[in-house]
Every structure is written in C-alpha cells, then in structure tokens.
C-alpha cells in the first residue's frame, strides 16, 4: 500500500493506492473518488456494539467503509475529511494514540478503534465524554479544521477548548478557567484544557466552533 497526502495544508486529502488483496477502512462519506472496480462494503465500526459506542459516545460514524482491491493490479481510492484543513498519518506499532471526536478519517485493517471514558472534564471542554483510541499495527489518518501543530509537552501545557485534536494516551487532561473568572469570560478564552505529562499533542489552528461563534451573530 502506498499513500500520499495531497493538497496540504489547506485542502489535504489522501490518495491510497491499494495492491491486490489490500483493504483500507475509512469513515462514512470519506471517499471522494475511486477506481470503479474496488469493492466498497459498509461495516459496523468495530462490531455492532462497538459501532454504537463509537457513534453515540465517540462522535464517529456508526458505519465505516471497507475498500478492498479484488483486482489483479494497483487501484486508487481518494479519501477526505468533511472540513477543509490538514491531515496527518501516524504509524502505530503496538502503541496507542487518542483522537478527539471527528478527527478519524481512515486506517489500515491492523488498527483497532476503541472508545474510552474521557471524563466529565473533557465534556466541559466541548470535547465529548469519551475519547477515541487507535491502537495496534498499521497506519491511521486523521485531520482537523485548519492547520495541525505538533507539540512535545514535558510538564504542563494549556490548549484552548476545541483546539485539541490528538494526544498520546499517557497525557492527563484537566479542564479549567483560562485565568481568573473575569478575564476568562471577558477575554473570550473561557475554558481551557490543561495537559500534563510527557508526550506529544496535536493542536488544530482553527476550530469549527470558533467559525460558528463568528457566524451566528451574523445570521438572521
């Protein structure tokens, strides 16, 4: 399997070239174009109950699509997230990575998608009660609205709510006010997420809720 991320950073999309017999799994509605003789089958996202859990708890689709190359030569499928923005690939080798709801785009068959309790603090941060974990062996593609910033945290780091995209599982998340009560509310920062530990986090440079907050007063 060969894959490239094109159109980055503003309009990233993924070209996956599948060799005969290979499969790639993608979230619902991620396919933009594909060879007509690839087989596409919708399956529950990790079994029936797993799919339900991911759909209702993890903010992911109930079904995922399996694209399989049953021909005798290479075939391409192009995959994209719903929003403009950047996309990244991570290669898992037995390790785990945590994704915020909606960030998952696609993965190879050796990757397990799971849902874990993220705590009420995560929900306060508008990031959902549960977090999506990816683990196992293989590649995962995830994306965000805006650019993606990678940050190695050692100690404490603070991220504005709704800008956190992904993080390593050992990182501890806490929700708190950005400053004092007045500066937090008047300064427009509100709640922030305090991240503690040693490891990698991924931040998106824009957020859909930020766009919506800007648009809403202008709609009538």
């Amino acid at each position: 399997m060969q894959s490239t991320i094109e159109g980055a950073p503003a309009f990233a999309y993924i070209n996956v070239d599948l060799e005969p017999g290979e499969t790639v799994i993608a979230e619902s509605d991620a396919m933009s174009s594909m060879a007509a003789d690839l087989d596409m089958v919708a399956k529950f996202n990790g079994g029936f109950f797993g799919g339900l859990a991911k759909a209702f708890l993890g903010g992911e689709s109930l079904f995922v699509n399996h694209f399989t190359n049953n021909t005798s030569s290479t075939r391409r499928v192009s995959l994209v997230q719903g929003t403009p923005g950047n996309t990244r690939q991570i290669d898992l080798n037995g390790n785990t990575f945590c994704l915020q709801p909606g960030a998952y785009i696609a993965s190879t068959p050796g990757v397990n998608l799971g849902v874990k309790w993220a705590g009420f603090k995560s929900w306060f941060a508008k990031e959902g009660l549960f977090k999506l974990t990816v683990s196992g062996q293989g590649s995962v593609w995830y994306g965000a609205y805006g650019g993606l910033l990678e940050k190695e945290v050692d100690g404490e780091y603070i991220v504005d709510t709704s800008h956190l995209v992904a993080y390593e599982p050992q990182m501890q998340l806490k929700i708190q006010l950005a400053g004092g009560l007045f500066s937090s509310l008047a300064g427009g920062e509100g709640f922030v997420t305090r991240i503690e530990g040693k490891g990698k986090i991924i931040i998106q440079t824009r957020s859909l809720s930020g766009l919506a907050d800007w648009l809403n007063p202008r709609l009538w």
Partner: peptide
C-alpha cells in the same frame, strides 16, 4: 474533482449554527 465536498462541510458546521 474537487478535494472537498461542500455538503459534508455543511453537515459538519450546520449543527453549531
């Protein structure tokens, strides 16, 4: 082809409006 789908973006943004 266009890399992105305006309908999908609307679906993502719509609930927040």
């Amino acid at each position: 082809c266009q890399s992105h789908n305006a309908g999908s973006f609307g679906t993502a943004l719509g609930p927040s409006l």
